[in-house]
Design a binder for these strands. Sequence first.
DNA 1: CCTCTTGTTTGATCCTGATCAAAGCGACTG
DNA 2: CAGTCGCTTTGATCAGGATCAAACAAGAGG
Lengths: 248, 248
Amino acid sequence: MSLHAPKLAPQDCGDCPIRHRAVCSRCEADELARLEEMKYYRSFQAGQTVIWSGDRMDFVASVVTGIATLTQTMEDGRRQMVGLLLPSDFVGRPGRSTAPFDVTATTDLVMCCFRKKPFEDMMNVTPHVAQRLLEMTLDELDAAREWMLLLGRKTAREKIASLLAIIARRDAGLRLRAAKGSLHFDLPLTREEMADYLGLTLETVSRQMSALKRDGVIEMEEKRRIVVPDFDLLFDETGDDTDGGMVA
Amino acid sequence: MSLHAPKLAPQDCGDCPIRHRAVCSRCEADELARLEEMKYYRSFQAGQTVIWSGDRMDFVASVVTGIATLTQTMEDGRRQMVGLLLPSDFVGRPGRSTAPFDVTATTDLVMCCFRKKPFEDMMNVTPHVAQRLLEMTLDELDAAREWMLLLGRKTAREKIASLLAIIARRDAGLRLRAAKGSLHFDLPLTREEMADYLGLTLETVSRQMSALKRDGVIEMEEKRRIVVPDFDLLFDETGDDTDGGMVA
DNA sequence: CCTCTTGTTTGATCCTGATCAAAGCGACTG
DNA sequence: CAGTCGCTTTGATCAGGATCAAACAAGAGG
């Protein structure tokens, strides 16, 4: 349907996600080679800030391993997460030189980076990259709009359930739906980070997690290890009207 | 800095925004001609739905005159606006065939459309279009993230002030800051639409508008005609920490 | 072993914004 | 002009989540 081969499954992805995400498998070999020699890696410890809002940002990057968050902070400290970067996700924008929000490593993090200028130059000669990047950005925009519905109109319980469903679904996507219905996964975020994601306080997050446990929607092996006995049960709590892709 | 000439001011824009927004002035004349012969116009009355969420969408378009909104609706009727389209804004995504949300004309609306397939084909041969589109999409993503901060963390009063500031600023951009400090403009949205934008109820919107009037931050000539005696005063109510571009 | 720290849970109370209800205000029409 | 419709304002009350506060759990490090 497009110029690109079907998206590669994450486990097929080698050490550098950009190579697979931004460039299609039919691109000429020398373009790939050019990309290869441009890239370099940066590692961050959990909790470390990758870049502060307003700072000069002279690279673009994609996540290789670990999780990073994009957050906006108001003067008085109110904080809202506006993006969650998982392996293979992309950050940075060709054509803008300062970061519009904080980027923070929530776990140990490895990113694959390209200096912005040569990356932009390369975009000009290899249109596939621009097209793939457009596609990814449009997906992100769709996700942001789902998120806006969540922030603006969902109840605390629905917000929690939605977040759990998002993470569960992503994990299930990788692990291809483990034990037929029953699903278990690690929560990569603290209660406070969940609160920042959802526009709630950490106390409310904690209370609603307890409520979902009490009501049998989820179980907790440990505080950060979740078991979902029946995904449909969880999904019913999200307020969304269709499942939309649990089954591949 | 890029392949594109500096962005044209809106008043320079002819009858078809895509021509100016999506293609740079240095592009070859025959590309412009090809775009010209592809385009067609569609008109909608205020209140009319352009396309329903989930419907097949076989065109891309940009707004010529009027205002359209993108909204998501939950089963029980809760509604969240996720996009506001002003003249020269773009809708539709190459590479996806169904609309992910409702598009509605809030005023009488004229859109300049291109059938999706030929538009995609053209994108493949004219990389400038893809690049320009990427740039626009990234701007939209930034706007969506600002909006997420508003929805997740701002108070009702801050939300109202932010919305008024956004509209005032946009109007000032066009009319180049009319009466030195004092600014007046029409609100293109009903109280209910404002509520859907802000994740509030229409009653709360009405009350906070009254409060801002009582406190001298705004005046109302008519219910939909706003006077801002001092923009800085309004801006102080938004919770944002820097003005960020009122003055060109 | 104890202490310090970080993340989490739970309780008590408060307050912002939602909900329910009624009335005002134009604009348009018969 | 009365009557209606769409939009807006205002009032009374309610409730969901925030805030303040305390205690718990699990490491890490001395």
